[in-house]
Design a protein around this nucleic acid. Structure first.
Lengths: 186, 186
DNA sequence: TGACAAAACTATTATCATTAGTTATTTTAA
DNA sequence: TTAAAATAACTAATGATAATAGTTTTGTCA
């Protein structure tokens, strides 16, 4: 029988690779087990079924995204910070399409760990817009707008939704700075 | 045996209701068959398997969305047209969460009917921003931004992603007009 | 070294999509 | 009006997947 020496982390890592390669739909226990050279039931020693695996993937993705945003914006402020965060956000979605997709699945938002990961992510975004000196309501609106813009762009691009033959990076810059200009003009 | 009197349209309608009620994940042939009082294989007389059904749902959703946008913006221009289209877009995503979700699945974007439906949808959005007198590149950037904003907002809201206790409709107005203000300031 | 916990296994059940082959019902055309 | 063809449904069977139960092997530690 010779143990495979699995581990929660190893299982998650395998799930991540499968998901980034083929999308969240490709993530099955059979696929993970095959990748790890093990029979599907063996995974239940490390993960509580497929929904739990998806959930862990979501939490992992949220933490990674938060870390990327924190790193990218360290020491920056104002428009620069927003632009740095935007670039980091899109880069993350591009580098980890499956993980990013997993991050956007609301199935388990009642889960405590998910909520905590989300809270930390939101914290960072609020901190990024705080130098704009907006009142509390406007700050919430602005954060919602920024999230919408970033998620919408990443999501559409990931789906191949931008068909026109025009550089996508330029569009991204245009779009983020347009939104920033709109904020300034209020 | 007494025929059930099915029909492509009836099957699609049943699929739509199931999807809007429980999300795209809930759409199974078993569920559709049960709803129609029929055994699953009977559906193959009207639909070429589950992928085809999802595809038809996508096309149907794109056409409906396009029609809503066209209707909402008829006779309007400038910021008013953008705002009217934005409201119609969000209203559609709210009224048909499952159908909207199906619309955003890129699985079959090589399908000719899907491309045609998308083209028509894009046509309308381009027509809406055309009065802004942007050059060709800026128009593409702007359309990409508007789509990102609308899709991102609809998607996040649909996932329950806006947790703060602040009116979501106000945020939507704020966000759309902020983007518009950004366009003007360029 | 022997007991126990952990990790893997086999076997099984249930759900779903799909295909093959069959039967009943319409529709069409002679 | 009726026989043939097309259509719509069915039953049965297969294959993929998730999940559970029960068993066996492997480490670890007192």
């Amino acid at each position: 029988m010779s143990r495979a020496g699995l581990d929660d982390r190893i299982v998650l890592e395998a799930a991540l690779e499968i998901t980034d390669r083929g999308g969240l739909e490709q993530l099955t226990l059979v696929a993970v087990a095959k990748k790890l050279g093990v029979r599907p039931p063996a995974l239940y020693n490390h993960v509580n079924g497929l929904p739990d695996l998806r959930n862990k993937l979501m939490i992992d993705g949220l933490h990674r995204l938060k870390d990327e945003l924190a790193r990218a914006t360290a020491g920056q402020t104002g428009d620069d910070a927003v632009w740095a965060a935007s670039q980091a956000y899109l880069a993350f979605a591009r580098k980890h399409p499956g993980l990013y997709e997993a991050t956007q699945r609301p199935q388990h938002w009642q889960d405590g760990d998910v909520q905590e990961a989300l809270r930390q992510l939101m914290d960072i975004i609020f901190r990024i817009v705080s130098p704009f000196g907006l009142d509390e309501e406007a700050a919430v609106h602005t954060v919602r707008g920024l999230r919408s813009l970033l998620h919408g762009f990443a999501s559409l691009e990931g789906q191949g939704g931008f068909g026109m033959p025009l550089n996508v990076d330029e569009s991204f810059r245009f779009v983020v700075y347009t939104f920033l200009a709109g904020i300034q003009s209020r």
